[in-house]
């Protein structure tokens, strides 16, 4: 997992161009390609190409974040903490966009923006759990302590998110497709034609998340070094 991120060298251009290409394709294909004709949902079925990749992106960002939290706890390298935080940051942005786009979609298909759907509630609670991660980090002054407690809480947050988003909605009935007993995307939920746009969109958005996170990481590294040097000069 961590190796996967390292493979995406922050200076290299191929995966950034791939990201731009896939996102372009998802916008053009997402609007113009054929989708199943469904009542109530109508053309809003196309929102699936943009709303769902937000959640895929969020989970992926949080997964990398947790990976580096574990890594930090194993070898106490400050750089792993920086990577962990910045991926959590980017994941949170994806999650907020997912919630907002979901509310717009729900308003026109379910009748209200907040339907109280188990998956919707679960996603909101998962975001609150991650908000607490940043509150926890912000409340600690000592770098070492902040990184250690942050890493421990990060692992907890990730494993709290899994049941909230993936398990509980399937145990009860949910308006989200693939919930209420069925496994995720089966042939009834996702038309084969839609996969041609959906999966490239997911990969494109994940790559965009990695891009943004890598920029934040690079800036943080320079900031840390400058602060370290200033501190050494002071002593």
């Amino acid at each position: 997992m961590g190796g996967l991120f390292q493979m995406l060298n922050s200076k290299s251009i191929w995966w950034k161009s791939l990201c731009a290409l896939l996102l372009m394709y998802s916008v053009v294909g997402g609007f113009l390609m054929r989708v199943p004709r469904l009542s109530i949902v109508n053309e809003t079925i196309r929102a699936l190409y943009y709303h769902v990749p937000m959640w895929f992106g969020m989970v992926f960002m949080f997964l990398i974040s947790t990976w580096y939290a574990v890594k930090y706890l194993r070898n106490h390298r400050m750089d792993d903490d920086i990577i962990s935080v910045e991926f959590a940051n980017t994941g949170l942005v994806f999650g907020l966009l997912g919630i907002v786009t979901g509310m717009i979609w729900a308003n026109y298909t379910w009748g209200t923006p907040w339907h109280g759907d188990p998956k919707q509630n679960g996603a909101a609670i998962a975001l609150l759990v991650y908000f607490a991660y940043f509150v926890l980090r912000g409340s600690l002054r000592n770098d070492e302590q902040r990184a250690r407690l942050g890493a421990v809480y990060n692992i907890f947050a990730f494993f709290a998110m899994i049941p909230l988003i993936f398990i509980i909605p399937r145990m009860t009935s949910s308006m989200h497709p693939g919930s209420g007993g069925n496994p995720g995307f089966n042939m009834y939920d996702l038309d084969n034609n839609m996969r041609k746009v959906f999966y490239p969109a997911v990969i494109g958005w994940i790559l965009l998340g990695c891009w943004i996170a890598s920029l934040r990481i690079r800036l943080r590294r320079i900031e840390e070094r400058i602060l370290d040097e200033a501190y050494e000069k002071g002593v």
Partner: peptide, 26 residues
């Protein structure tokens, strides 16, 4: 579609500029 393509191009272009700026800072 045209509007979305413009917005996406603008965002990606902005990200490319930010990327280069970061490299220069490094």
């Amino acid at each position: 579609v045209a509007i979305l393509v413009v917005i996406l191009l603008g965002l990606i272009g902005y990200l490319v500029l930010l990327d280069r700026k970061t490299s220069r800072l490094e």
